[in-house]
Design a protein around this nucleic acid. Structure first.
Lengths: 260, 260
DNA sequence: AAGTGGTCTAGACCACCTG
DNA sequence: AGGTGGTCTAGACCACTTA
């Protein structure tokens, strides 16, 4: 249980983001443990939904005290990478859970009713990344990508029109059929079928007017105001793996945000 | 340092929100300590920006170990009620700080330039709460309220038109002069001059079209799409103390949101 | 040098879940 | 009963700030 090294050793700081503040150069033990666990998660050692070893197991494995493991796991749970369940264990977070279903969809119905929405896939094709898409996916212009468009409907009325871009490599084999057949949330499919887990996203929200094509799909008059939600999603290591451009009809819904 | 009571005692659950889930009935020691500290913050025992007693002081005062105080303070820091500074102490969070300046304004310029915006007060008057405002402020329709409107300008161009409603009681003495004279963020003034500290807010975002009056003030054509941001702000005890309706011109700015 | 928060340890016991 | 996470304690030492 006692570490041979009495002091925290230098952390692996080789992946420090360019443009960020000066590298910390040193990090406490619990943060090194956190990085080690993150790396195992990234490597798929434990699959989404599975339990990871108990704190005592991990403490023995890393030759640190349980308290140190605990602090590392606490932070990973705060980051939504792990889920703790008292008496049962600690589990790899998954998008396939009911509770976490709406972590990434902030749209709420005005009347506080059912949030469930039906999906309708419009098209799904493999193509080459335009310059702007390539920039957001951090790949090269012209690289293989999957482009898909879909509608989300609440009570049979279209509310969201999404255009989604995915890198071709990780999503090799993604077809309209597989998408249409899959039950459950799309991010759940991505992690289960392609091993790509979305852990964080940034959204840029604007008000725009509907063009003719979007208006027809969303069943609103051309020129109607729509919420434009551009989302860049990241997986482990802050690597962007999705670009999503959504148009939301906010007549009977609103985008809910919490400021802390 | 040893508590006479070997087990966590029942927490004060008298303020459980109606409609919430079943009351927890018991809470760990560190959460009781957290509630005690919160109550002192709420009571203004320590002013925003001031240091609170050291962890060892608090531990002695509450007759618990430092670790227990530490966990309580950790949570309060995570909630942005306190700010820890290594080697210096723990301080009451304040809106008057440069770092925290933009915690509640999520608007970013497209070009990544300066976020600083100029304020222009349009009007400030005392009136009676309309029904919808009263509901959001959890007061009675017709109660005294302060209504004010203002513009935020980026590089001399109007970008945000805010209509703000405040309860008349806590904000007695708020005048256009005092608002115009005050340097620094408005929430900083609220906490310094009126003892009202905003700690949390919920926003409902929609796309709308500009009416004639708003269009003129924001220098956009009538019918232009605008972001409607309705904010309900809360102080200690989840008590709503502000209703704010903003119209954002998102031509050169966007609302930035992070999904975790 | 003294005081603060930050890290780490070791051990005890509790609350919860499962067999 | 045994395993898991959750709480609490006591003490050591480190890193940072100030005087």
């Amino acid at each position: 249980m006692v570490a041979d090294v009495p002091l925290p050793t230098p952390a692996d700081a080789s992946e420090a983001a360019p443009g960020a503040a000066a590298a910390p150069a040193f990090s406490p033990l619990y943060r090194q443990i956190k990085d080690l666990i993150t790396r195992e998660l990234q490597g798929g050692v434990w699959k989404p939904g599975e339990a990871i070893p108990s704190e005592l197991d991990l403490a023995a494995r890393f030759k640190v005290s349980q308290g140190t493991v605990r602090k590392a796991v606490d932070e990973l749970a705060a980051d939504n990478l792990l889920v703790r369940r008292q008496g049962k264990g600690t589990f790899v977070a998954t998008h396939a859970e009911q509770q976490i279903q709406y972590r990434f969809l902030r749209l709420m119905p005005d009347d506080g009713g059912d949030r469930a929405m039906a999906r309708r896939l419009l098209d799904c094709r493999r193509t080459r990344a335009p310059a702007d898409v390539a920039r957001m996916l951090e790949c090269k212009s012209g690289d293989a990508v999957v482009q898909l468009r879909r509608l989300l409907l609440a009570e049979a009325q279209p509310v969201v029109l999404d255009e989604i871009w995915l890198p071709g490599g990780p999503f090799k084999g993604l077809t309209a059929e597989r998408l249409a057949d899959y039950k459950g949330p799309m991010y759940g499919m991505f992690e289960a079928e392609f091993g790509v887990r979305m852990i964080r996203a940034e959204e840029r929200i604007r008000a725009v007017v509907a063009d003719a094509a979007s208006a027809e799909l969303l069943a609103v008059p051309p020129g109607a105001p729509l919420l434009s939600v551009e989302r860049q999603s990241f997986t482990y290591g802050d690597k962007p793996v999705e670009l999503r451009r959504g148009l939301y009809n906010t007549t009977r819904h609103f985008y809910r945000n919490e400021l802390n």
